[in-house]
C-alpha cells in the first residue's frame, strides 16, 4: 500500500481541476438562473452573453457563481453530484426503490448494479470468445505459412474499421438470423479483443530460441509435442500482456454494442442519459465502467500471478 499516498495526491489534483472546470463549463446556465432569481448580471442582455466566451463571463460575474456546483442538469456536474448519483442509483435504489433488491428480490433495472452486471457478462463472454479465437489463429499462423501470409493482414485491417460503425451492422445482421441479447454484444467484444491476443501469441509461440527448438528436434518430437511442451508454456508471459489489453478492449466492445440496442447495460445507460440530458447519469455510468475495467484488469493480473507461481516463474 506504498502507492496509496501518490494515488491520493493525483486524485486530489484531479478533483480540484474538476471543481474549477465546473465554473466556466456551467456559467451560462448558472447566470441565467441567477438572473431569474433577481440578480444583476453583466452584461444584462442574454443575446450579448450568448456571443461571449465563458471565461470573460466568469470574470465579469464573480459574485453570482454559487450555483456552479449544484445545477440540476449541469454541462459538467461536480464530483459530489456524480458521487450522489452513484450512491442513489446503487445503494438507495436497491434498498428503498420499488424495484430494488429489498422489495423485488432482484437488482433494480433502474440501478447501476443491474446494468453493470449486464455489461460484465457480455464482456466476459466476448473476452473468452476473443481469447479462444486469438489463440487458435495464432497457433495456425505459427504452423502454416499460408495462414501467416493470409490471416495476419486481415486481422490488422479488421482493427482499422471504427467499431462504432461496425457494431450496429453486426447487431442487425445477427438479429436477422435470430441471434439477439447478450451474444451480439459478446461478438463485438470478441472482435476487439482477439487482435491483441493474436499479436501477442504469435510473438509468444515464436519466442523459444533455436537451441530449445533444436532440443525438441533431437528428441524427434512431433509438432504437437513442440506446441504443448515448448511453444505454449513459453508464450504465457506474452499471453497475459495481451489479455490485459484484450479485457479492456472487450469492455469497450460490450459498451459500444449496447448503444444501439437499449436493452440494458452501461452503454444503454450512457445513451439514455444523453437523450434526457441527465449528465450525472452519464458520469455515473462512466465511473461504473472505469471501476469495472479496473476490476477486470486486476482479475487478469491475479490469474497471471497464480499461473506464474504454478509455473515456478516467480520467487
Amino acid at each position: 500500500m506504498r502507492s496509496l499516498g501518490p494515488i491520493l495526491v493525483v486524485v486530489l489534483h484531479i478533483l480540484a481541476i474538476w471543481y474549477v472546470a465546473c465554473v466556466p463549463m456551467n456559467v451560462r446556465e448558472v447566470l441565467t438562473a441567477a438572473e431569474r432569481a433577481g440578480a444583476e448580471i453583466v452584461p444584462p442582455e442574454a443575446s450579448v452573453r450568448r456571443d461571449m466566451g465563458a471565461i470573460p463571463l466568469v470574470l465579469a460575474n464573480t459574485d453570482h457563481l454559487g450555483g456552479s456546483w449544484s445545477q440540476d442538469r449541469a454541462k459538467l456536474p461536480a464530483p459530489h453530484q456524480v458521487a450522489q448519483e452513484i450512491w442513489a442509483s446503487t445503494f438507495v435504489e436497491e434498498v428503498e426503490g420499488r424495484r430494488g433488491l429489498i422489495r423485488s428480490g432482484t437488482f433494480s433495472n433502474r440501478g447501476l448494479i443491474h446494468h453493470t452486471g449486464i455489461t460484465l457478462w457480455a464482456t466476459v463472454l466476448g473476452f473468452a470468445m476473443g481469447t479462444g479465437m486469438g489463440i487458435l489463429l495464432a497457433i495456425g499462423i505459427v504452423h502454416s505459412r499460408t495462414m501467416d501470409m493470409s490471416v495476419m493482414p486481415w486481422a490488422i485491417v479488421s482493427q482499422t474499421i471504427p467499431i462504432v460503425a461496425l457494431a450496429p451492422m453486426i447487431i442487425v445482421v445477427l438479429y436477422s438470423v435470430g441471434v439477439q441479447g447478450m451474444l451480439p454484444k459478446a461478438v463485438i467484444s470478441a472482435y476487439l479483443s482477439f487482435f491483441p491476443v493474436v499479436v501477442g501469441m504469435v510473438k509468444g509461440l515464436r519466442s523459444p530460441d533455436q537451441s530449445q527448438l533444436d532440443l525438441m528436434h533431437t528428441y524427434n518430437a512431433s509438432s504437437r509435442d513442440v506446441l504443448i511442451k515448448l511453444r505454449l508454456p513459453a508464450s504465457v508471459p506474452y499471453l497475459f500482456a495481451s489479455l490485459k489489453i484484450g479485457i479492456a478492449a472487450s469492455l469497450v466492445g460490450a459498451i459500444v454494442g449496447e448503444l444501439p440496442v437499449q436493452k440494458g447495460g452501461l452503454g444503454a445507460r450512457m445513451l439514455a442519459g444523453s437523450y434526457y440530458g441527465q449528465t450525472t447519469q452519464i458520469w455515473a455510468a462512466l465511473f461504473a465502467a472505469a471501476l469495472l475495467a479496473a476490476f477486470l484488469v486486476r482479475a487478469v493480473g491475479w490469474i497471471e500471478r497464480r499461473t506464474q507461481r504454478a509455473m515456478g516463474l516467480s520467487a
Binding site: 537451441s211 530449445q212 533444436d214 532440443l215 525438441m216 518430437a221 511442451k229 508454456p233 504465457v236 515456478g312
Partner: peptide, 25 residues
C-alpha cells in the same frame, strides 16, 4: 543425447521435469 552450450532448461519445468521431458516425448 545432445548437450548444448547453454543449458537450455525450460524455466517453467522443475529440474526433474526437465529431465523427464524427453521421456514424456
Amino acid at each position: 543425447g545432445y548437450v548444448f552450450q547453454a543449458a537450455s532448461l525450460y524455466p517453467w519445468r522443475t529440474i526433474g521435469g526437465n529431465v523427464r521431458l524427453p521421456l514424456e516425448i
